[in-house]
Design a protein around this nucleic acid. Structure first.
Lengths: 146, 146
DNA sequence: GCATTAATTGAGACTTTGTCTCAATTATAT
DNA sequence: ATATAATTGAGACAAAGTCTCAATTAATGC
């Protein structure tokens, strides 16, 4: 996985620097939902001089290469950066009351993806399917609280 | 449409203030993809004293009532706030190169929504389906540019 | 291994976004 | 009209993200 990314970076003529490698390492081991701030913190554990600017630059670079996709950047409470290295798509439910996030596996976009891709000439690299509403618990509390 | 929202606000015991009405008016006429900053600017054209805090507070309120959903808050280049008043779902393709956004109408989540809702006890109020990749034009340019 | 060179970096200033507090205002019920 | 509690604007604050520039460093060719 990391190897693939490294290859694609080099193919595209980018250098394999230590700060960059630190970010990649964090992304590989950190799961799909890290915020830039978390990536910075974890990255500095590997390469202490790592700067915020470099984290953003690396994320942007990977993004341009289609290896990664930031979702909900800037959002604070919930997880923020979402890595598309692991899967092609991301699926979850978000509670608009407590902010909790429940992932699910079912993917129903395959056919649609092909249709859209063809119709619009779009090269699709990934997707995000997100439902929002009230989770089981908040559904009950809702009326009592307010 | 605006009437519905006004009703739901009052039902829930919230006041119909001028700043709030200004925001609602902007949301009603501004389409589905306004950023909080844009909402503030347009709102101030209607009610000059409108403050940023009030915009955020109103968006949060509407969000809690399930009338609205902010997507990609904090993101700068592309549109940010996404209003769920108009439709139940939002569907678009995002180009990771130029940032353009192409909406589409097809919705394939109905059945899945019912399944998840039942399985997890989640009360689903809306959804976002977003594909990302390269648009027709960027797909061509990509290799030439770099 | 060593020098060259262009890409990359860190630091930190800066901008923008979002949150919070508090005194002043205002919509609503009476 | 008055009382009262919700709502507001201002502005301080915090966090997120961008940008510049001089210093560093990875890759290339020797």
């Amino acid at each position: 996985m990391l190897e693939t990314i490294v290859e694609r970076l080099q193919e595209a003529g980018h250098r394999l620097t230590k700060p960059r490698m630190a970010v990649l390492q964090v992304l590989e081991t950190g799961g799909e939902h890290l915020s830039p701030a978390e990536i910075l913190a974890r990255g500095q554990a590997i390469y202490p001089a790592l700067s915020r600017a470099t984290v953003y630059r690396t994320l942007e670079l990977l993004s341009e290469l289609g290896l990664l996709r930031l979702i909900h950047p800037g959002e604070q409470r919930s997880s923020v950066a979402c890595v598309a290295m692991h899967h092609h798509g991301h699926h979850h439910l978000l509670c608009i009351h407590c902010g909790c996030m429940i992932p699910f596996e079912e993917c129903v976009v395959g056919e649609l993806e092909a249709t859209l891709s063809q119709r619009l000439g779009f090269e699709i690299k990934g997707h995000l399917l997100e439902f929002y509403g009230l989770c089981k618990e908040c559904r009950g509390h809702q009326k009592v609280e307010q």
